[in-house]
Computed example of a mutant assay.
Amino acid sequence: MKNGPRQRATIIDVAERAGVSKSTVARVLAGSASISDEARDRVLKAVAATGYERNHLAVGMRSGRSGMLGLVIPDITNPFWAEVARGAQDRAAKDDISLLVFSSDWDAGTEATHLRALRRARVDGAIINPVADNFDDLDRFGLPFVFIGSSAERFPDTLSVGSDIAQAVRLGMDILVERGHPAPALMLGPRSRLARARFLRAVHEHCIARDIDPDILLVEESDYTVEGGRKAMGRLLAGPWRGSRAVFVANDLMALGAMIAVREAGLRCPEDISILGFDGIPAGAFSWPGLTTIEKPGRQIGIRAVECLLDQIAGRPEHGRIFLPCRLVERGSLADVSASVAVRTAAGR
């Protein structure tokens, strides 16, 4: 005869094993300071021995909190967004908070469905990379929230955490100039994405500051995917190329696809084509050559977003808009042709 399922331990079981009252157990689990060290130790040992777990639903009904947060990101298969989710999860876990993660797939309708699900789940707040341009659900959301990512720029009065894209692009353009590539081709995402406009604006500002006509830069666009980068690189290679053969790619997945296209064309990176990525996903370290890239602080964005959201839930002052700095990660995909550029410049004078 099979045994039935083990009965779940209750707070009464813990109290009996520890030899204290039920209210004492409750105060220990709530983190009360008005408990002796000896009683707290007995309760915690009893909790471990019985396998007791708090009923968070019941606690939430009493406190008005569910102990859950929501996270809506555009593409959980993209390693950058996975890093954001991991940072958010790790930070939430420090406060014994669960995180519900949804992927909108860059679709406004899917995003709206997820937001409704979060409301039904009675989460305490949400972190959102807004896909919809007008975000009609914003006023109706009815919960504390924090925006993340480039899309948050459409809502300047809303609390948000993201990468400092202007600083990141300057880092990339500076290393390109230093390595002898002052006018690289650009590989950008779709015109519908705000990140594309921010990236291009920062490149133009850098060029104008260095007295370079931004109109001379070759521009290709595609999806933020490996296949998108492969196709865009193929189009660049098929057309006329002005200046040094270097490409500044606005997404590491696209950059990895571009490297595939270079090999398929019988060329070498960086000897024939230099490639600079943008995101800092782990896969870039395992390509050949390793992808030189501008690393965005994905995990830190997730951590800071949770911290800002918890502050907002607790009624502490808002943080405003937070832009976290990016950093250059040098590997092997960017050639240094500065010496030959200097020779050519001197010879042409």
Rank of each mutant, 00 (worst) to 15 (best):
T345D: 11
G60D: 09
V161K: 02
D213T: 15
C269K: 03
V47E: 00
L71D: 04
D215P: 04
N3V: 14
P297Y: 06
S160I: 03
L171T: 01
E111Q: 15
K94D: 09
V101H: 01
L276V: 02
G228M: 01
C207F: 14
K296T: 07
R42V: 03
V306T: 11
G189W: 02
A202W: 02
N55L: 07
W106M: 04
G266K: 02
L159S: 03
D311W: 05
L217A: 07
S244M: 13
G31N: 02
G257A: 04
A82W: 14
K22W: 03
T110D: 07
A197P: 09
W288A: 02
D107F: 00
R327E: 06
L176K: 03
D13V: 07
M61H: 12
K45Q: 12
S34K: 13
P214Q: 09
F248H: 09
D90E: 13
G332M: 01
I73Y: 04
E205C: 04
I294N: 00
G67L: 08
D174C: 01
A265N: 06
L176Q: 01
K231P: 10
G60S: 07
I216A: 05
G277P: 02
G109N: 13
L143P: 15
A250H: 11
A108S: 04
I73K: 05
G19C: 08
R299L: 00
P144E: 09
I281Y: 01
R210V: 11
R54C: 05
N55R: 12
V329K: 09
A46S: 11
R242F: 14
I148R: 00
I11G: 06
L310F: 10
R304C: 00
D279Y: 04
D164A: 05
A117M: 13
I35Q: 05
A209T: 05
V131C: 07
S63W: 01
G290T: 08
S192D: 08
L237T: 12
M254Y: 03
K22R: 10
M68L: 06
L334M: 08
G60V: 12
D213V: 14
T24W: 06
I281M: 04
R242L: 15
L276A: 04
S338A: 07
A335I: 06
L171C: 00
P282D: 09
R191L: 11
R170P: 00
I216H: 10
S36V: 05
P144G: 04
R331T: 08
E83R: 02
D37P: 04
D133N: 06
P297N: 11
L138F: 05
I313P: 00
D164F: 08
V59H: 06
E227P: 04
R198H: 10
R140Q: 11
V337D: 03
P325G: 05
N78I: 14
R65W: 11
V47N: 01
N134E: 14
P190T: 09
R230Q: 15
E264I: 09
R263E: 13
P289W: 00
C269M: 08
L100Q: 07
T113Q: 10
C326S: 15
T110H: 11
R304L: 01
S244Y: 09
S34H: 14
S66R: 14
R91C: 14
W81F: 15
G228H: 13
I273L: 14
G229M: 08
A92I: 00
L310A: 10
A39Q: 13
M68T: 06
R17Q: 12
A30G: 12
G60W: 12
D136M: 12
A255D: 10
A258N: 08
